[in-house]
Design a protein around this nucleic acid. Structure first.
Length: 321
DNA sequence: CAAATTTGACCTAG
DNA sequence: CTAGGTCAAATTTG
C-alpha cells in the first residue's frame, strides 16, 4: 500500500519498465473484462431492441465500444511487447517458413497437398505451423460463441493442467475467403465449483481470438442491416454479423467446451463479476417500459431471433427435460 | 448426401 | 521429450 498505490505513473517513465508492464497487464485485463461484459450486454440488449429502431443505434454504440477497447488492447500490447524485447512472436520463423514452402509450393491453396504427396512416398509431410499471431485477444465469457462469426471446429486438445479440453475453431469461410481468423475456447475451472449447481452452471469460458477476419460472410442478409461497423478489424469482433447466421458455431461451441451453454447465457448473470452488471442491466431494461415481458422472459428465446438461432432452444430443452 | 464434428496421428517449439 | 496446434479420415448430424 505504501508503495505506489495512488501515485500510479500514468505513462510511466523509462525507469520502471516492470511496473509499466504490470500496469499494462492490469489494464489489459480490465479492458478484456470490459469486452466480455459488452459482448454479453449486446447479447441481451440487441435481442430486446430488435424491433425497436433504437436497436440500430445500440448496436452501433456497442460495436463502437468494442472497437475502442480493441484498439486500446492493441495499443497496450504494442507497448508491452516493446518493453519485453525477447518476445519475438511477431512473425513466423524463417526456418519454419522455408520448410513450409519447401514441403508444398502454395500455402493456403487447397490442392497443394496432393502435389506434396509425391515427394515422400508414404506421407505428404503435413504443414503445421504454430500459431504466432501478434494480435491475439483473449476474453472470458459465458457465451464463447456469441461473436457474430461462424466457426468450424477443427480440433480439440486436452490441456495439461486443466481438466477441460481446449477446442480449436477456424473461420468457416477460411477456404472460400482465405479468412485466417481462428479462436480457441476453453472452459475455465477456477470459479468456485462448490455450489456449481444452483440450478445452472456458472460456467465461464476463456476465448482467445487469433488473427483477423478477412471474410465478410456474415452480413449477407444484412445489406442494410444494423451492426455495420466502420473501422472493422475485429478481434473480439462481431461485425459482419447477420441475424441468424451463427447456428453452426453454436453447435460447435456447445460440443466444444462442454455441455450446453444456453443455460449460461441466461444465467450468465449468475456467476462472477458479470453477475452484478447483468443484474443491473436486468433492472434497467424493463424500466424502459417498451421492453415488456420479452425482456423479462428473455431467458432463452430472446436470443434466438437475433443471432443465436433456435439451437439454443434445443439445448435448452435438453436441459429442462 | 453434404457439411460439420470427432479423434488420433502428426508436427513443431521449447 | 513434452505440450500444444493442426491435419484429415472416420463418424455424426441435418
Amino acid at each position: 500500500m505504501k508503495n505506489s498505490s495512488n501515485k500510479r505513473p500514468l505513462v510511466a517513465d523509462q525507469w520502471h519498465p516492470s511496473s509499466v508492464c504490470c500496469d499494462h497487464r492490469a489494464a489489459l485485463r480490465e479492458i478484456a473484462r470490459g469486452q466480455s461484459l459488452v459482448t454479453q450486454l449486446r447479447a441481451i440488449v440487441l435481442p430486446a431492441l430488435h424491433s425497436d429502431e433504437r436497436g440500430d443505434l445500440a448496436a452501433q454504440m456497442l460495436e463502437g465500444i468494442l472497437d475502442c477497447s480493441r484498439k486500446a488492447i492493441s495499443e497496450l500490447q504494442l507497448q508491452l511487447s516493446s518493453d519485453s524485447p525477447h518476445d519475438d512472436d511477431g512473425h513466423l520463423d524463417d526456418k519454419r517458413r522455408v520448410r513450409k514452402i519447401v514441403s508444398s509450393s502454395s500455402d493456403d491453396d487447397d490442392h497443394s497437398s496432393s502435389k506434396a504427396a509425391e515427394d515422400h512416398n508414404a506421407k505428404p509431410l503435413r504443414q503445421h505451423k504454430r500459431r504466432r499471431f501478434g494480435d491475439s485477444v483473449s476474453l472470458e465469457t459465458p457465451v464463447p460463441h456469441y461473436d457474430g462469426h461462424q466457426w468450424r471446429k477443427y480440433g480439440q486438445k486436452h490441456i495439461n493442467n486443466s481438466k477441460h479440453p481446449r477446442s480449436y475453431y477456424r473461420c468457416t469461410y477460411r477456404q472460400e475467403e482465405k479468412c485466417k481468423a481462428t479462436k480457441t475456447v476453453q472452459q475455465r475451472e477456477d470459479l468456485h465449483h462448490a455450489n456449481s449447481y444452483n440450478g445452472d452452471h456458472p460456467v465461464m469460458y476463456t476465448v482467445v481470438y487469433y488473427g483477423q477476419h478477412t471474410c465478410c460472410k456474415g452480413p449477407a442478409a444484412s445489406a442494410d442491416d444494423h451492426v455495420v461497423v466502420e473501422a472493422s478489424q475485429i478481434s473480439t469482433d462481431s461485425h459482419c454479423q447477420s441475424p441468424g447466421s451463427s447456428s453452426s458455431e453454436l453447435q460447435a461451441a456447445a460440443h466444444a467446451g462442454d455441455s450446453s451453454q444456453c443455460s449460461n447465457i441466461s444465467v450468465t448473470c449468475s456467476s462472477s463479476v458479470v453477475v452484478e452488471d447483468c443484474n443491473k442491466l436486468l433492472d434497467m431494461l424493463p424500466a424502459a417500459d417498451e421492453l415488456t415481458t420479452d425482456v423479462l422472459l428473455f431467458d432463452m428465446t430472446a436470443y434466438a431471433p437475433l443471432d443465436l438461432d433456435i439451437n439454443w432452444e434445443m439445448d435448452t430443452n435438453a436441459l429442462w427435460a
